[in-house]
Each structure stands twice: as structure tokens, then as C-alpha cells.
Amino acid sequence: MKSLQLVLRQLSRVLLVCFTASAYAQESAFNMTQGVTNISEQVYDLHMLIFYICCAIAIVVFGVMFYSMYHHRKSKGAVAAHFHESTKVEVIWTVIPIVILVLMAIPATKTLVAMEDTSQSDLTVKITGSQWKWHYSYFGEEVEFFSLLATSQKAIDGIEEKGAHYLLEVDNPLVLPINRKIRFLMTSDDVIHSWWVPDFAVKKDTIPGFINETWTRIDKPGVYRGQCAELCGRAHGFMPIVVHAMEEDQYEQWLVAKKAEIAQAKQEAAASLTASLSMEELVEIGEKVYLERCSVCHQVNGAGIPGAFPAITGSKVATGDKNEHINVVVNGRAGTAMQSFANQLTDREIAAVLTYQRNALGNSVGDSVQAADVNQFKASKEGQ
């Protein structure tokens, strides 16, 4: 009697776990998100279907196991059967799993096919992964920008209090309209990254030299966050994704404003070529650029990381020939993590950060670099 009670108690625990998990799975913070797209809902429904099937299999398997343990126990005089093979049993345990797998494969295949269908899109956005930032380019709109981590270095170092979206905030979010099919073309400038936004059920690798495709159609306006999901280097954890989904009319207004902002930036960049800033002005601007773009590798104090990223302090480049210094920042260095900043920074920003590196962080060369110097260097290289 006691053994029967023990068996029933164990079986009830299994049933309780399965049914409780099924009943509260949708509310659990540990479960997959339902998201805000049709594809994300399909993925969630598929996930729950497989989960329920697994629960049903667990109930059957454990039920048969506990029943067999009780019904064929030694105290009841049960004697183990002796046989080497049974065609009937082999057919049963082969056919049943095949049927289950087929039933699981049908909805899974439909979802996978839908996820890969990028045809008839309303908007195409090119996403380029780069150590350690994202570059977004809107096809046919002449709008492109970089999106960088906005969490301050002081918050990362624990000097300032961490915000609600610590390491999940950027300076320029990707802005998209709702109710439109958006195709993403994905590639990389350097190593493999992975663009992942759980609410869209979109996770696609960005691979150097290749173009991957995926798509989404957002149903609800809001701010949705994700991360790079591929270990891509030292600052992998500092490469967040923020998508601001807007109503279609709001998106059109943002697009007009963004184009005006880009046009103004180009005018300011052109005007800076004839302007001559003082050493103090260049150092002030350069420090801000350095902290935002350079300190993640070369460190805030310019000491670098031995064996990985060279120091700025005492560097032969930062204290040597001005044109060589410009060349390294403008064109980068092949085979290293030093990327080209020609299209990431304006000529004035490049001039300022070069001046800062040459006259701060323990260096005191005493000269300055103007935007015109950077522009002239670029023009000379293009003419070669």
C-alpha cells in the first residue's frame, strides 16, 4: 500500500509540473516573448505547441514508467520477461516518434518559409555590423547613420548610477514605420555580428563579404530593444539595438526631419573646411569624440590594452608625422581592429580627435590638425 501511495505521489508531481507549466507559461518572464509581429506570434505559437507536445510525452512516458514499476513490482511476484527482440515493439517505438516529428515539422516548416519570404517589401534597410556599432542605410531615401551605445563610461565604471536601460540605449535608434513590410539586408565591415530583436523574432548574422536577408512587419508602435547575439570581440556587450516603431505619418515626419538634419550636417562640414579652430577648441571637441569612439579600445587614459590595442600615450603614430596619423584614422589598418573612420566622423571631428591625441593623454606634440588638413589628405589619396 505504501509503495502504491509513493508511486501515485510521484505521478501527481509530474502531472502538476506539466500542467502548471502549461497554464502559466504565457505569463512567465522566462518564457519566449510573443512579440509585436505576425512572425513573432507564429514563432511563439510554434514554441508553445512543441512545449505542450513535450508535456504530453512526459505524462505518457512517466505514467507508463510509474505504472510498470508498481504493477510489475517484485513483491507482487512479477518475473521479468526474457526475449531478445520484438518486431511489434520495434515498429511501435519507431512509428510513433516519426509521426510526432512529422506533426511538429509541418507547422515549423510553414513558419520557417514565412520567415525567409522577403518579397514585396515596402522599405529596405541595410544593416552593417561594425566593431562595435551598427550602421543603418535606408534605400532610396539618402538617409544613413551610425548607432552607438549611449550609456556613459562613468555608468559602466560604476561611478554614476545605472539607468533603466543600462547598456541597452543608443544615440541614434533605428526608426521604422508600423504596418509596412520592411526588408533588412545585413552585412559586416569586420567580423561576424548578429542583429537580434526578440520582439520581432528577427536574429540574423551579419557576415563580412556576404549579404543576408530577413524582414519584419511591426504591428504596434513602441521602442523595442535587442543586442548583438554573436561574440564579436571585447566590446560585444556594448553593441545594443534600439528600434523606434512609429505610426506611418509620424515616420514620414521623422524622415523629413532626418533628411534636413543630414543636409545641415553636410553644410556645417563644408563650412568647417574654411574655419580655423584654436588648439583649445580642437582639444575640447576631440576629447568628446575620443571618449565616444576611441576609449573603448585605447582606454580613457590612452594606455591601451597590451597585446590587443596599442596605447595612444607615447605612440609613434600620435607623436609622429601628422599625415601618417591622419592616414591611420581615416583609412584604418588592415588586419587589425583599427577601422576606417572616414565615413563615421566629419573632417572637423577627425581633426579634433587627432589634435586631442597629439596634445593630451600624456602627449604634447604642440601642433594642431584642422579640418582642411584632413580634407586635403583625402583629396590627395583620391587623386592617386
Rank of each mutant, 00 (worst) to 15 (best):
E252S: 03
Q253L: 09
Q253I: 09
W254M: 01
W254T: 04
L255I: 06
V256A: 09
V256Y: 07
A257Y: 03
K259E: 14
A260Y: 00
I262A: 01
I262M: 05
I262K: 03
A263H: 03
A265D: 08
K266M: 10
K266C: 01
Q267V: 13
A270V: 10
A270D: 15
A270Y: 06
A271M: 10
L273C: 06
S276D: 12
L277N: 08
S278E: 13
M279T: 07
E280R: 06
E281A: 14
L282A: 09
V283H: 02
E284Y: 02
E284I: 02
E284L: 08
I285A: 13
E287L: 00
K288V: 14
E292H: 15
C294W: 06
C294T: 13
C294Q: 10
S295Q: 14
V296M: 11
C297Q: 08
Q299L: 14
N301G: 10
G302E: 11
G302D: 11
A303L: 12
G304E: 11
I305Q: 09
P306F: 05
G307Y: 09
G307L: 07
G307N: 11
A308K: 12
F309Y: 15
P310V: 06
A311M: 10
I312H: 03
T313V: 04
S315V: 09
V317A: 12
T319R: 00
T319S: 04
T319Y: 00
G320Y: 13
G320A: 12
K322Q: 15
H325K: 04
H325A: 15
N331D: 14
N331F: 12
G332A: 04
G332I: 06
R333A: 10
A334M: 07
A337W: 05
A337G: 07
M338T: 12
M338Q: 13
Q339S: 09
S340G: 11
F341V: 00
F341L: 09
A342R: 07
N343R: 12
N343D: 15
Q344E: 15
L345C: 07
T346A: 00
T346H: 01
T346V: 01
D347H: 10
D347K: 05
R348K: 13
E349N: 07
E349V: 05
E349K: 01
A351M: 03
A352C: 03
V353K: 02
L354H: 08
L354A: 11
Y356E: 00
Y356H: 00
R358P: 05
R358D: 08
N359L: 07
L361W: 04
N363A: 13
N363E: 14
S364R: 09
V365T: 14
S368I: 15
V369M: 04
V369D: 03
A371M: 02
A371Y: 01
